Simulated assay, not measured.
Amino acid sequence: MGEGHMIDCKPDKADRVDAAGLQAFVSRIVSDHEGKEIIYLCIGTDRSTGDSLGPLVGSLLEERGVAGVMGTLRIPCDANTLPRLAKTLPDDAIIVAIDACLGRAESVGLFLASRGPLVPARSVNGGFGAIGTYSIAGVVNENSLKPYWTLQSTSLYRVMRMAGEIADAIASAVARQASQYFKSNAERMGAYE
């Protein structure tokens, strides 16, 4: 198995952030791409505690009414479905790839936020290509010599907390953008009365 995780190798373009930093990162994405389609590609499986981060985020986003979600607990975007789903992504869409990863002990519980793609299943040699316009990788556990076992024994509580932080950041950024859009339209309409 081992669907969808990368090793925390601190790519040049990635910033290691906490929940507040993640909120700022997502807010910039949403405001920079106002009016464009944004797809939240939530990579992972519901069959591994550590690798369930993506599908948990996808399910939480659906519950919050966020549009453009691919990959949930009900329909995961895992090693079996990712190649097929990747082919269906619109060429002009902004893709925010969300995945779990293993990393250094001091990074566990933090996020790698990048203005660039991530490589799913890197830690278990999954052989997938890079995906995403932007990426969020949650460091769910410490890197080890046995990444598959480490993901299986990762704290569900930690994964759920991190999934909530990602979903909250995205949902609030989307809601804030919608609120600003409606406010500016209302002001514009008021100018014509």
Score class of each variant (00 low, 15 high):
residue 146 K to T: 11
residue 187 E to A: 10
residue 179 S to W: 13
residue 153 S to G: 01
residue 162 M to E: 05
residue 151 L to H: 08
residue 117 P to N: 05
residue 132 G to Q: 01
residue 153 S to A: 07
residue 161 R to E: 15
residue 92 D to Q: 09
residue 169 A to W: 00
residue 189 M to K: 15
residue 95 I to C: 08
residue 103 G to T: 02
residue 127 G to S: 06
residue 191 A to T: 11
residue 143 N to W: 07
residue 98 I to R: 05
residue 161 R to A: 14
residue 183 K to H: 15
residue 150 T to E: 13
residue 110 L to N: 08
residue 132 G to M: 00
residue 95 I to T: 04
residue 188 R to I: 12
residue 107 S to V: 02
residue 185 N to F: 08
residue 153 S to F: 05
residue 141 N to T: 02
residue 106 E to C: 02
residue 93 A to G: 13
residue 127 G to F: 04
residue 136 I to R: 06
residue 187 E to K: 11
residue 160 M to L: 11
residue 144 S to L: 10
residue 131 I to D: 10
residue 168 D to A: 14
residue 98 I to T: 00
residue 183 K to N: 15
residue 131 I to Q: 12
residue 171 A to Y: 08
residue 174 V to S: 04
residue 187 E to R: 14
residue 93 A to D: 10
residue 180 Q to S: 13
residue 122 R to L: 14
residue 145 L to A: 13
residue 98 I to H: 05
residue 91 D to Y: 07
residue 91 D to M: 07
residue 187 E to T: 06
residue 190 G to K: 11
residue 143 N to G: 15
residue 184 S to H: 12
residue 151 L to F: 11
residue 189 M to W: 09
residue 112 L to E: 05
residue 161 R to V: 12
residue 167 A to L: 11
residue 141 N to H: 04
residue 191 A to M: 10
residue 161 R to C: 12
residue 102 L to H: 04
residue 185 N to K: 13
residue 182 F to T: 09
residue 155 S to Y: 00
residue 160 M to S: 15
residue 112 L to F: 07
residue 184 S to W: 06
residue 150 T to H: 07
residue 168 D to Y: 11
residue 177 Q to A: 15
residue 148 Y to H: 14
residue 146 K to W: 09
residue 117 P to W: 08
residue 167 A to N: 10
residue 179 S to C: 12
residue 138 G to I: 03
residue 176 R to D: 15
residue 91 D to V: 08
residue 111 F to Y: 03
residue 156 L to K: 10
residue 171 A to G: 14
residue 166 I to C: 03
residue 188 R to H: 13
residue 135 S to I: 07
residue 189 M to H: 12
residue 173 A to D: 04
residue 95 I to A: 04
residue 151 L to S: 12
residue 127 G to M: 03
residue 110 L to A: 06
residue 91 D to P: 03
residue 94 I to G: 01
residue 192 Y to W: 08
residue 162 M to G: 02
residue 127 G to V: 05
residue 111 F to N: 01
residue 162 M to T: 07
residue 168 D to S: 10
residue 192 Y to Q: 12
residue 126 G to E: 01
residue 134 Y to A: 03
residue 125 N to C: 05
residue 116 G to Q: 00
residue 163 A to F: 06
residue 171 A to S: 13
residue 100 A to Y: 02
residue 190 G to M: 12
residue 127 G to A: 07
residue 159 V to K: 05
residue 108 V to T: 07
residue 184 S to Y: 08
residue 143 N to E: 12
residue 169 A to E: 03
residue 141 N to I: 01
residue 97 A to C: 07
residue 142 E to A: 08
residue 120 P to H: 03
residue 182 F to C: 10
residue 165 E to Q: 05
residue 166 I to D: 04
residue 111 F to G: 00
residue 179 S to I: 11
residue 147 P to K: 03
residue 128 F to Q: 11
residue 188 R to V: 09
residue 162 M to Y: 01
residue 134 Y to N: 02
residue 161 R to L: 11
residue 129 G to R: 09
residue 106 E to H: 05
residue 97 A to H: 02
residue 190 G to I: 06
residue 172 S to D: 11
residue 185 N to I: 12
residue 164 G to Y: 08
residue 129 G to H: 07
residue 188 R to S: 09
residue 168 D to F: 08
residue 181 Y to K: 10
residue 151 L to C: 14
residue 177 Q to D: 15
residue 102 L to F: 01
residue 142 E to Y: 02
residue 191 A to P: 04
